[in-house]
Structure formats: C-alpha cells, structure tokens
Design a protein around this nucleic acid. Structure first.
Length: 423
RNA sequence: GGAGAGAUGGCCGAGUGGUCGAAGGCGCACGCCUGGAAAGUGUGUAAACGCCGAAAGCGUUUCAAGGGUUCGAAUCCCUUUCUCUCCGCCA
C-alpha cells in the first residue's frame, strides 16, 4: 500500500508514475484526497468531544468525593449529549475510513524510474543474455516425454492421487528434485542468507499483509475450517516474520532464504502453458528475501539478481534477464527482473525467477519500520526473489541435457544426486 | 478434545472502578564521578493519528483482539485468539 502522505504531498507525481503501469489514478486520487480531508476534520471533532468527556468524568469523580451528588448528576446529562454526537462522528468516521481504505488498496505500487512503458510481456527489456540458446538440430524430446521414458515423474499418477498439476516424482526424478533444493539452499547460505523453515499455511492477517488478500483470494487454496491459506510462495510467511516489527538501522541487511512447497490454484490457466512441468498447482521453490535500508535497496536488488543468475550459470543453462515493463509488472513491485531459461526442446523461454524491489509498499501494510540515523521512524524496504523455482529448471535441465545415452546431470548437482546420468 | 490458570511498556513485574501511559526493577541513552573503566549517581526512556510551515507544545487513542456495563475501565461482564499446567489422543 502506498502511504497516504505521499499521495497528499505529490498527487500529480503519483498519477504520472502510475501511468507507466497503465493505471489511471486521477479520479481515485481525487476521491482519496477529499476523503482524507473529511477524515481529518472528523478526527478533530472526535478528539475534542472525547477531551470534553474526559474532563467531565474527572470532575464528576471529584464532586462525588466532596459529596456533591446533585452537581454530579447534572454533569452526567451533559455527557449523554456528548456521547450521542460521539456516536454519530464515530459512525461517519468508520464509514469514510472504510471507503478510503478500499481505494488505497486499489492503488498499485509506483514503478521505479528505470521501468519502461509497455503493455505486455512483449515490451519487456532484455538486459542480459548468456549461453547457447540455439535449438537442437534433431528431434529433441520435450520433458513430458523424457520423464515417461525414464520413469522419473508421473503426471497421471498425480491426477489419481490429487488432480492435475500435482505430479509425483519418482526415483532419480525425486532425487534430482531434492538435489536442486539442497544445492539452492546451500548456495544461499554461502551467500549470507539465513535459512528459514516456514509454515506452509498462513492466517488471514499474513495473507493480507503481503498483499495476497484481498486481491488474489481466488489464487490461494483455503482451509475453510481453520481459515488458513496454503502459501503460494515462501515469501508470505518469511516476510510476515517482520510484521509489526521495528528494526534498528544496524540490523540491515536482513537476508533470509527458505525452501517451501508452493500452492497455487492458477484459475484461468489452460493449454500449452500448463503442459508438463510448465505450470503446476504444487511446486517447490527456494525463495530469498531481504529487508533493507531505503538508501541501499536498489544496490541490493542488483545483488539479488546477480545471485540468481549465478545459479543458472553454475547449472549451465542458457538464460536471459528481463527488466519488466510497466504493463507486465506485479501490482506490488517497483522494479522487477525476470530470469528465463531457454528450453531447447520446447523452443521457448521459461521463467524461473522473478526478483523484485517493493520499496516500502509491502512494509506499509506490514508495519515494518526502523529508526533511522536521526531517530525517526521510517518504513523499511522489502525485496524478494526466487532462487530458484524448481519445475522449469528441471524441465530445462532434462530437455537441454538429453543425449542418446540419457540425461546428463550437471557437475554441481552430482555431489547431491549421487549419480551423473539419468538413463 | 476435557478441566483449570493466565495475557500489562524492549524485558521482568505491581496494580481489582476515578488524578494510571501505568509503581518498582532490569535494559538502553545521555550526563556527573574516574587517568580509563567498573561500581556509584542524576536525568531521560513507546507508538499511531490529529492541530502546526517545521520544531516546541497541545489533544486523542493504545494494558492480547473485538464488543458491553459505567459519568469514568488495565481493573467488572461477554466473545475470540494465544500461552501455560493436568488429563486424553498422537508422529
């Protein structure tokens, strides 16, 4: 959520910057500002009313002590009046508060100045490329055929047990998966991240604080009986560790990483995009989360991007890095880099990581603050990224490393797998 | 799941209807003391929001959360959440 002060102080700048995200904020800001003025007036009235009541209550106490019952009773009548008008003000205030809040949560985060204008994924800017992204000159098998050939991932069996999008990993497939998780977690630790094992279900407050609610309610699995949500990413529980927290400026940077299974309903997805491992309802991911001083958050974003890139380099996968355009960015992000690997058999780019700086947008809802050098309370900046999401990495490894003899396991994974070929 | 006890500031802990944002202690910050430190000693020690150009100042709110009783609630009542103890169940 944006801060009301920002909107109050620079409404035209906010409108201008949100237009890069193709969001027309003119009317909504006009309404917010008008509600804001009314709210502040009401607040003032309420404060005065309450002050009056408090004063009267005190003098009643004194009068009783002195035994002046009649005078006290007279004052009581006065409070009754005040209470009535308090009720009115209160009602109006909560009505307006509700309205302004409804509008505030509709406003996306403002994009960073480097974010290009654009409507869709086609307008994203390629900022880096590495590796051989050419296609095989023979008929390479897509991963959904390879996994059958070597019996390492079973989609049909997953359908039987749960449903589409819940594959079952078997034998070397399961071991590969575990090897990737361990490789990613160990690398993160070596790079200064503290490993966290979070809960896979969160309560309503947590889902709200990181912005999944009220926005993406239908995208999360919901355990009705207890009103818990299955996490769509470890970002949710890990970032919520810092909900309602006040940090010291010496606490920065906070670097956490977490492996978790992620659960997404992916309502509305269909077709080729969901084939095989490309889009699942349950998948594994290692997430990195940082909390930074506002002055250093963009430097940190670059480092996180470089770190995610280093994983792909070590796995030997061809990839490129995109700076997302305004139209393709998430609601909460100020700047996002996507990392995509090239899958030679499918002949397409697959997103395996998304690294974002949310600036203070999440921190505002989280109430994640710190005391700065001058002792002033300020919102911290939050950042996160996938390092990495497993299924598409797996898909690309299977497809790109296939040979007539089997699938070659990358060097860096062999200590974790205990084998060097899947055949 | 059953029975009971509890939730107070950064932490410990007092407070069972009025002047309580809350005693006392610890911690922390600054000062004095000291050659330097420790000890000692003095002062201070929350957040949100509003009034205000800013600061100062003032006001309101906050004793788990929400509701209620009352002129007045940390204190009484109800609901919820969480913690602890005992029993049951269980990896």
């Amino acid at each position: 959520m944006l801060q009301i002060q920002t909107i109050r102080e620079n409404p035209t700048e906010v409108i201008e910057r949100l237009s890069i995200k193709n969001f027309d904020a003119k009317e909504i800001i006009h309404n917010i500002l008008s509600l804001d003025t009314q709210i502040r007036q009401l607040k003032k009235q309420l404060d005065e009313n309450l002050m009056e009541q408090g004063k009267i209550a005190k003098s009643i106490g004194l009068l009783y002590k002195e035994g002046k019952r009649a005078e006290a009773d007279e004052l009581k009548l006065k409070t009754a009046e005040l209470k009535n008008s308090e009720k009115d003000i209160q009602a109006e205030l909560s009505d307006k508060d509700g309205k302004i809040n409804e509008l505030m949560v509709l406003m996306p985060n403002m994009p960073h100045s480097s974010v290009p204008r654009g409507k869709s994924a086609a307008d994203n800017e390629v900022v880096y490329e590495e590796g051989d992204a050419s296609n095989f000159n023979y008929d390479a098998l897509p991963h959904w055929d390879l996994v059958k050939k070597y019996d390492i991932i079973d989609f049909e069996l997953g359908c039987k047990i749960t449903g589409a999008g819940f594959p079952i990993y078997k034998g070397k497939g399961a071991k590969m998966q575990r090897a990737l998780i361990n490789f990613f977690l160990n690398s993160a630790s070596e790079n200064g991240y503290t490993e966290i094992q979070p809960p896979y279900m969160v309560n309503e407050n947590s889902a709200y604080a990181t912005g999944q609610l009220p926005d993406k309610e239908g995208q999360m699995y919901h355990a009705n009986l207890d009103n818990f949500y299955l996490i769509p990413t470890a970002e949710v529980p890990v970032t919520n560790i810092y909900r309602d927290v006040i940090l010291k400026s010496t606490d920065f940077p906070i670097q956490n990483c977490a492996y978790s299974a992620c659960f997404r309903r992916e309502a509305g997805s269909y077709g080729k995009d969901v084939r095989g491992l490309n889009r699942l309802h349950q998948f594994d991911k290692v997430e990195i989360v940082q909390i930074e001083h506002p002055d250093r958050s963009y430097e940190t974003l670059e480092n996180m991007k470089l770190y995610a890139m280093s994983l792909l380099q070590r796995l030997g996968l061809p990839f490129h890095v995109l700076r997302l355009c305004g139209g393709d960015m998430s609601f909460t992000s100020a700047l996002t880099y996507d990392l995509e690997v090239y899958s030679k058999a499918q002949q397409k780019w697959l997103e395996v990581s998304s690294v974002s700086n949310f600036e203070s947008f999440q921190a505002n809802r989280l109430k994640l603050r710190f005391k700065d050098e001058n002792g002033k309370m300020r919102l911290a900046h939050t950042l996160n990224g996938s390092a990495l999401a497993l299924p598409r990495v797996m898909a690309a490894l299977l497809e790109n490393n296939q040979t007539p003899d089997g699938i070659i396991v990358p060097e860096v994974l062999r200590p974790y797998t205990g084998f060097d070929i899947i055949n």
